[in-house]
Computed example of a mutant assay.
Amino acid sequence: MEKLHHYARLVRLDRPIGIYLLLWPTLWALWIAAEGVPDLTILLVFVAGVVLMRSAGCAINDYADRKVDPHVARTKTRPLAAGLITPTEALGVFAVLGILSFLLALLLNGLTIALSLVAVLLAATYPFMKRFHHLPQVHLGAAFAWAIPMAFTAVTGEMPPLVAWLLFLAAVLWTTAYDTMYAMCDREDDLKIGVKSTAILFGQHDRLLIGILQVLTLLLLAWVGILSSLGGWYWLGLLVAAGLSVYQQWLIRHREPLPSLQAFLNNHWLGMAVFIGLAVDYAF
């Protein structure tokens, strides 16, 4: 039982924020593709897939960072960094979760199954990017947003239309913005150990560039709303999302670790606001 507890912490089941941040764009895509509530089987497959893939991503992330995490205050108590599980066990957890995710995808059509292979590749490679370039947050954005074209192909059986790729781009920019807030928490430690991030790349312009990313995200979501002929409830959801973006800017105004973490966490509510606007709009 103790080992299972360590595995649960490895995949962050005690910190579900990553599940939420991956879930909301997935639900946006499913509702827009289906023009309302999607098929129940497809919905359940994607919700379960979100949980499994996010968990798998955490496992491979900790494996990739096994020599780095012990030197970072926020991550040194993670099970692998603390020596509570072995690197081989972490790889095993990643493999099992990845296989389960692929088996789930087999319940969908062939085009979606093909796209799911890209999803696994993005999830497996993301944790290693911070060693090669300063844009791992963009790579994470692509990994999180890849559920969007998959959702469209699952619902329609066809290649995703323009609106899907606009939604994909919005999700990539949004993820880059909030994960930069997250990276601001570790910036000092990352500079010492040589780990790269957008927080380091943006430097003193971090708040400005995060703000630009937030504005572009909202503009793309507005374009999606126009192309999808969405009504007042959706625009109300976007207005709430805009207000939350301003609040996040206020939180990171002094670039302090704890408020930056709170700004990152607040994006759960932003994603939810957009989804509620979407769901209510389609319902009425």
Rank of each mutant, 00 (worst) to 15 (best):
Met1Tyr: 15
Lys3Leu: 12
His6Asp: 03
Tyr7Asp: 07
Ala8Glu: 03
Arg9Glu: 15
Leu10His: 01
Val11Met: 11
Arg12Ala: 07
Leu13Glu: 13
Tyr20Asn: 05
Tyr20Cys: 05
Leu22Ile: 08
Trp24Leu: 15
Thr26Tyr: 00
Leu30Pro: 00
Trp31Leu: 09
Ile32Pro: 09
Glu35Phe: 08
Glu35Cys: 07
Pro38Gln: 11
Pro38Met: 12
Pro38Val: 11
Pro38Gly: 11
Asp39Lys: 13
Thr41Gln: 06
Ile42Leu: 03
Leu44Gln: 09
Phe46Ala: 04
Leu52Pro: 02
Met53Asn: 01
Gly57Ser: 04
Cys58Glu: 03
Cys58Ile: 06
Ala64Thr: 05
Ala64Ile: 00
Arg66His: 03
Val68Gln: 01
Pro70Gly: 05
Pro70Ile: 10
Val72Trp: 06
Arg78Val: 05
Pro79Ala: 04
Pro79Trp: 02
Pro79Glu: 08
Leu80Glu: 11
Ala81Trp: 05
Leu84Pro: 12
Thr86Asp: 06
Gly92Arg: 06
Ala95Gln: 02
Ala95His: 02
Val96Leu: 09
Phe102Trp: 02
Phe102His: 00
Ala105Lys: 05
Asn109Tyr: 08
Asn109Asp: 11
Gly110Glu: 13
Leu111Ile: 09
Ser116Asp: 14
Leu117Tyr: 13
Leu117Trp: 14
Val120Ser: 05
Leu121His: 07
Ala124Asp: 12
His133Gln: 13
Gln137Glu: 14
Val138Gly: 00
His139Asp: 15
Ala143Leu: 04
Phe144Thr: 01
Phe144Ile: 01
Ala147Glu: 10
Met150Val: 09
Phe152Glu: 14
Thr153Ala: 14
Val155Asp: 00
Val155Gly: 03
Met159Leu: 07
Pro161Leu: 09
Leu162Ala: 03
Val163His: 03
Leu166Met: 04
Leu169His: 04
Ala171Gly: 10
Leu173Met: 14
Thr175Asp: 12
Thr175His: 11
Thr176Leu: 11
Tyr178Trp: 10
Ala183Trp: 05
Gly194Trp: 08
Val195Glu: 07
Ser197Phe: 07
Phe202Met: 15
Phe202Ser: 15
Arg207Asp: 13
Leu208Arg: 15
Leu208Pro: 15
Leu208Asn: 15
Leu208Ala: 15
Ile212Leu: 14
Ile212Gln: 12
Val215Lys: 09
Leu218Met: 04
Ser228Asp: 07
Ser229Glu: 15
Gly232Leu: 12
Trp233Gly: 04
Trp233Tyr: 08
Tyr234Gly: 12
Gly237Gln: 03
Val240His: 11
Ala241Ser: 08
Leu244Cys: 02
Ser245Lys: 05
Tyr247Arg: 14
Gln248Asn: 01
Trp250Ile: 14
Leu251Asp: 14
Arg255Tyr: 04
Pro259Gln: 06
Leu261Cys: 02
Leu261Val: 01
Ala263Ile: 09
Trp269Pro: 01
Gly277His: 05
Phe284Gln: 12
